[in-house]
Simulated assay, not measured.
Amino acid sequence: MIKILRIIAFFLFIGCHLAFLLSILFEKVNNFWLISGILISTALITYAYYHKNIQEEEYFFDDLQDIVYISLGALLTYFISVDLEFGSVIAAGFTGTLASYLPNIFRKTWIQRVPVAAYCGAFVGMTAPAVSSGYTFIIFSAFLTGALFISAKNVFNGFGGKLGTIAFGGVALSSLIVYLLF
């Protein structure tokens, strides 16, 4: 079952990256060099993803904790951004900085997991109020992002943009579900 989730996560990440690249392509269709660069980038990303070594771990309780930390990071960032009106970049920076100091303050082994998950949640919390319908949407997006985060735990390590791509996938999937249901 875990292997199937890893394969699904693999194709979701490729799909997210291809969506980014295709959006650029459709915006600037007339530029030959841009189209060539996008095609080369797509080929290189797919090749790198395909040949990346995948290591499997199974820690159910730790995975649930990651979902909680992602949700807390998303909620804190959204609160600071929307309710306190500091803006999404400042809010995500504050959340990431706060989370990064927690392992130094509290020397517990479980708290070592907080910074990465909370920062992934900070990207979810950066969702614009025009896209999200409030805290319910942010919590739903955080749970979907947590599921993606868990399924891609040991996949794509060393690739830049992993947390942002995971958060984008969770928010985009949430938006699609909300759009289809309502």
Rank of each mutant, 00 (worst) to 15 (best):
residue 72 L to I: 10
residue 133 S to D: 09
residue 142 A to D: 03
residue 31 N to H: 01
residue 139 I to G: 04
residue 74 A to G: 07
residue 105 I to E: 05
residue 111 I to D: 04
residue 101 Y to E: 12
residue 129 P to C: 01
residue 182 F to K: 09
residue 11 F to K: 04
residue 18 L to N: 12
residue 40 I to R: 08
residue 110 W to D: 15
residue 127 T to Q: 06
residue 137 F to Q: 02
residue 149 F to D: 00
residue 9 A to K: 01
residue 29 V to R: 11
residue 50 Y to H: 15
residue 12 L to Q: 11
residue 151 S to E: 00
residue 11 F to Q: 04
residue 8 I to C: 07
residue 146 G to C: 09
residue 9 A to C: 07
residue 39 L to N: 05
residue 56 E to N: 14
residue 14 I to T: 14
residue 32 F to Q: 11
residue 136 T to A: 14
residue 124 V to C: 02
residue 78 Y to R: 08
residue 80 I to W: 01
residue 16 C to Y: 15
residue 96 G to Q: 08
residue 113 R to P: 05
residue 68 V to K: 08
residue 158 G to K: 10
residue 59 Y to S: 15
residue 14 I to V: 14
residue 87 G to L: 04
residue 57 E to R: 13
residue 10 F to W: 13
residue 75 L to T: 11
residue 177 I to V: 09
residue 149 F to I: 02
residue 75 L to W: 04
residue 60 F to E: 12
residue 27 E to A: 09
residue 95 T to R: 03
residue 1 M to H: 01
residue 173 L to F: 11
residue 127 T to V: 10
residue 5 L to R: 05
residue 86 F to W: 12
residue 165 T to W: 01
residue 29 V to M: 11
residue 180 L to N: 05
residue 22 L to P: 05
residue 14 I to Q: 12
residue 106 F to I: 15
residue 62 D to N: 15
residue 62 D to F: 14
residue 85 E to G: 01
residue 74 A to D: 06
residue 172 A to G: 05
residue 59 Y to G: 12
residue 159 F to L: 00
residue 24 I to S: 09
residue 83 D to Q: 01
residue 126 M to K: 06
residue 110 W to H: 12
residue 104 N to I: 10
residue 12 L to G: 09
residue 55 Q to Y: 15
residue 17 H to E: 15
residue 148 L to R: 04
residue 5 L to Y: 03
residue 108 K to R: 11
residue 107 R to E: 15
residue 67 I to Q: 03
residue 14 I to Y: 14
residue 61 F to T: 15
residue 30 N to W: 13
residue 52 K to L: 11
residue 15 G to N: 12
residue 170 G to T: 03
residue 69 Y to H: 14
residue 69 Y to L: 09
residue 27 E to D: 09
residue 100 S to A: 07
residue 63 D to G: 13
residue 158 G to P: 00
residue 102 L to F: 06
residue 54 I to G: 02
residue 67 I to S: 08
residue 46 T to R: 11
residue 73 G to F: 06
residue 37 G to T: 10
residue 36 S to T: 13
residue 145 T to V: 08
residue 80 I to A: 00
residue 167 A to D: 00
residue 180 L to W: 05
